[in-house]
Design a protein around this nucleic acid. Structure first.
Lengths: 168, 168
DNA sequence: GCATAAAGGTCAATGATACTGACATTTTAT
DNA sequence: ATAAAATGTCAGTATCATTGACCTTTATGC
């Protein structure tokens, strides 16, 4: 017969793990809902939002770099990028050091759109952060950080790639 | 000219908000990847997983209740539920008090499948919780909780509906 | 210099998940 | 008796993803 779990480890019981799954589901559900109207009026979807977001986050990221973040196929990404290019939200610039690489960058319109989409999420995020407090936010980051595959953790905040030399 | 932000509010700057978005993306991306092989071998997808999860979480939930959680149309949910019923993972039981309602319940096979899917996520979650510590987990919950629309917060941990009277 | 690999693009077919709109059934409530 | 609620279904469509095959351009290793 096993002893009851010590109180300090109660947060590892199944109910506490499922509570985290519940909260993650509802929070991301509501958070992703915010930019939707904004996107719909321009004939775009969540896939375009994700691409815009990470190009804003990592200026001059290559196609491979974006694929490594999004974990989709290049055919899927290609469709999304071509639409964003056709609509004038992003541009591709061949690399100087390696001209096979296409570095992705937001145009002025793309920067404006990405900022508008972020604005729809800002209030929810600032409300959540300020209601929870700075210490809670630190914990929030910690737990999420450790949920990420260690092999990917290194890439999360890598904002300047070692080869971001693009024309212009 | 505005004064610089006070250090106590630095966590509300845009970079800190975007950091949360980054972490949420990568953590949920990796977390949702875990059950995928398990699901694929049985011809199921993430939509089936979500339904199984919330039926496990809220035994005897009605179709309306599940729709309110998932925020999809009844046509979309119907397809998913019919597959799960056909495969013997869930059953529908008419309500005793209101026979229009269909209460959803996992079968033995459904309970086993849901448990197997949860197992694929358990290690990642326990690792994250224990590496981050109990205090961080509390913060993790707090921030996510405040990200949820207040109108929905009440329903998050409502495990026994006021009318869960189902046959058998 | 030449073979090979890397980075990227494209065509075609398909699958999973979602949507709108319309309509039907059963049961409850007024 | 009629209206409304809860659920189901048919039909068509959109979005986002997949696999597989093939191609071009450019870089690298020998």
């Amino acid at each position: 017969m096993a002893l009851p779990l010590s109180p300090s480890n109660l947060f590892l019981r199944e109910e506490e793990l499922r509570r985290g799954l519940d909260l993650l589901f509802f929070a991301t559900r509501d958070l992703q809902h915010d930019p939707d109207q904004q996107l719909e009026t321009r004939g775009l979807g969540s896939a375009h939002h994700r691409a815009l977001y990470f190009i804003a986050r990592h200026p001059d990221i290559t196609v491979s770099g974006l694929l490594a973040i999004l974990h989709i196929t290049k055919q899927s990404l290609s469709r999304v990028l071509n639409q964003l290019i056709a609509d004038g939200y992003i541009v591709q610039l061949p690399g100087l050091r390696d001209r096979r690489r296409r570095h992705l960058r937001l145009t002025e319109a793309g920067t404006a759109l990405e900022a508008a989409l972020f604005e729809t999420q800002r209030e929810r995020l600032t409300e959540a952060y300020s209601r929870a407090g700075a210490e809670a936010v630190a914990g929030f980051w910690q737990v999420l950080w450790h949920m990420i595959d260690p092999s990917n953790q290194g890439r999360v905040f890598e904002h300047t790639s070692p080869d971001n030399t693009a024309q212009r």
